[in-house]
Amino acid sequence: TETAWISLVTALHLVLGLNAVLGLLLLRWQF
Results as ranks from 00 to 15, higher is better:
residue 25 L to E: 02
residue 29 W to K: 15
residue 16 L to Q: 10
residue 22 L to N: 05
residue 18 L to N: 04
residue 27 L to W: 10
residue 11 A to P: 03
residue 27 L to R: 02
residue 31 F to S: 13
residue 25 L to G: 07
residue 19 N to G: 09
residue 11 A to Q: 00
residue 21 V to H: 02
residue 23 G to L: 15
residue 13 H to G: 15
residue 26 L to R: 08
residue 6 I to L: 10
residue 9 V to Y: 10
residue 15 V to C: 14
residue 19 N to Q: 04
residue 15 V to A: 15
residue 14 L to Q: 03
residue 9 V to I: 12
residue 7 S to M: 13
residue 17 G to K: 03
residue 12 L to G: 08
residue 7 S to K: 06
residue 2 E to A: 08
residue 10 T to M: 08
residue 16 L to S: 04
residue 22 L to G: 05
residue 27 L to F: 11
residue 23 G to A: 14
residue 4 A to M: 03
residue 8 L to I: 07
residue 8 L to T: 06
residue 7 S to A: 15
residue 8 L to H: 04
residue 2 E to R: 01
residue 8 L to R: 03
residue 19 N to P: 08
residue 15 V to F: 11
residue 29 W to T: 14
residue 22 L to C: 12
residue 28 R to T: 08
residue 10 T to Y: 00
residue 5 W to S: 05
residue 25 L to V: 10
residue 13 H to N: 14
residue 19 N to I: 05
residue 16 L to P: 04
residue 28 R to Q: 02
residue 11 A to M: 12
residue 25 L to D: 05
residue 8 L to N: 01
residue 6 I to S: 04
residue 21 V to A: 11
residue 15 V to M: 13
residue 29 W to E: 10
residue 21 V to N: 06
residue 5 W to H: 03
residue 26 L to D: 04
residue 10 T to I: 12
residue 9 V to G: 03
residue 16 L to D: 09
residue 21 V to Y: 09
residue 28 R to H: 02
residue 10 T to W: 05
residue 17 G to V: 14
residue 31 F to I: 12
residue 2 E to C: 00
residue 29 W to H: 15
residue 3 T to F: 03
residue 7 S to L: 14
residue 14 L to V: 13
residue 30 Q to L: 12
residue 14 L to T: 07
residue 9 V to P: 00
residue 14 L to Y: 10
residue 8 L to G: 07
residue 27 L to V: 09
residue 21 V to P: 05
residue 6 I to Y: 02
residue 20 A to T: 07
residue 18 L to I: 12
residue 29 W to V: 14
residue 16 L to E: 06
residue 11 A to I: 10
residue 16 L to R: 03
residue 30 Q to V: 14
residue 18 L to Q: 01
residue 4 A to K: 06
residue 13 H to E: 11
residue 11 A to L: 11
residue 4 A to S: 09
residue 28 R to D: 01
residue 10 T to F: 07
residue 21 V to S: 04
residue 27 L to D: 07
residue 3 T to E: 03
residue 22 L to F: 11
residue 16 L to I: 14
residue 15 V to D: 01
residue 23 G to N: 06
residue 27 L to P: 08
residue 13 H to K: 11
residue 21 V to Q: 03
residue 17 G to F: 14
residue 26 L to F: 09
residue 10 T to Q: 02
residue 26 L to G: 06
residue 14 L to F: 11
residue 22 L to S: 02
residue 19 N to T: 11
residue 6 I to V: 11
residue 17 G to M: 13
residue 28 R to P: 04
residue 6 I to W: 10
residue 19 N to M: 04
residue 10 T to E: 00
residue 13 H to C: 15
residue 30 Q to A: 13
residue 16 L to Y: 04
residue 1 T to I: 13
residue 11 A to N: 00
residue 17 G to N: 02
residue 5 W to G: 03
residue 10 T to C: 11
residue 18 L to E: 08
residue 13 H to S: 15
residue 27 L to M: 10
residue 28 R to M: 13
residue 11 A to S: 07
residue 17 G to A: 14
residue 14 L to A: 07
residue 23 G to E: 05
residue 3 T to V: 12
residue 22 L to Y: 05
residue 18 L to M: 14
residue 29 W to F: 15
residue 2 E to D: 11
